[in-house]
């Protein structure tokens, strides 16, 4: 197998715990904040362990350059970008091939949820900045971007939730960290519309039997439903808090 020379690193200990103490099917804590970038039409900040991401949505707005506009729907554009200081060794700020591919797959993970037909000749622009990377950045980006889209009031069929599945020391694990990605056997980024049961991102990098893959997908599906609840809570939070404040203020 690949990385056999690195097998000295124990990714699952004798108690079945992972490097950071999690069980295989345990997610890191996810914090989602809505609407912190004031200039954007919608925005979100997601913290998943040490993976930290800002997402902003601009639009629907006029398309520049104009020839890209479509007469029957909005175009969705996405830029996934890592800050130079987000990784151990400084990364050049110029977009890498990896970032270009990830921008594409993130866009394709989000677009199925957006009701693009409502905005002909317009563009919906999604910007994702990875501030600190510790695995699963593309999934956390999708979680953040989908909340940012909803908070911009853009009509969507569902939110898109995302998580990664890995295989380390022959065990399938949920929500892969950087070290598990580097030394593990498999990385499987996954996104879906949880209420519609539609998978919108599926990538696999590593060897799996089809039965294992089936298990990985059902693990990911379950996790996405939990993430959806967190996205929902975060979106409602700012309105619910205000409502509470007003009702309590009314009493005094």
């Amino acid at each position: 197998m690949l990385n056999t020379k690195n097998k000295k690193i124990v990714l699952i200990d004798s108690d079945g715990r992972r490097v950071d103490g999690r069980r295989p099917d345990e997610m890191r804590d996810i914090k989602i904040k809505v609407g912190i970038l004031e200039n954007a039409d919608g925005s979100a900040y997601v913290e998943q362990g040490n993976t930290k991401i800002y997402a902003a949505v601009y639009g629907p707005r006029e398309v520049h350059p104009r020839h890209l506009a479509l007469p029957d729907r909005a175009i969705v554009r996405c830029r996934y970008h890592m800050t130079p200081f987000s990784v151990e060794e400084r990364k050049s700020p110029a977009p890498t091939r990896r970032e270009i591919e990830l921008s594409k797959v993130i866009r394709e993970a989000l677009t199925p949820a957006i009701v693009v037909e409502q905005f002909p000749f317009s563009s919906i622009d999604v910007f994702v900045e990875v501030i600190n990377a510790d695995g699963s950045t593309r999934c956390a980006s999708i979680v953040a971007a989908s909340v940012a889209l909803a908070s911009a009031g853009i009509p969507m069929r569902d939110l898109v939730a995302a998580c990664s599945i890995g295989k380390v020391d022959s065990v399938l694990v949920l929500d892969v960290t950087d070290i598990e990605d580097k030394y593990g056997e498999v990385d499987l980024p996954f996104a879906m519309m949880p209420n519609r049961g539609e998978i919108t991102l599926l990538q696999l990098d590593g060897v799996l039997r089809l039965e294992e893959l089936e298990k990985a997908i059902s693990m990911a599906t379950k996790a996405c439903k939990e993430i959806y609840e967190k996205q929902k809570k975060a979106l409602k939070e700012k309105y619910v808090e205000l409502r509470k404040a007003i009702i309590e203020g009314g009493k005094t």
Partner: peptide, 27 residues
């Protein structure tokens, strides 16, 4: 595929697939 196992997957395109469809595609 290699030795009947799957080693890379890439879903492409701006629509989704159900879990059932995904597994059917892979088979």
């Amino acid at each position: 595929f290699v030795d009947d196992k799957v080693c890379t997957i890439q879903k492409r395109g701006e629509k989704g697939l159900t879990e059932e469809e995904t597994l059917k595609c892979l088979r």
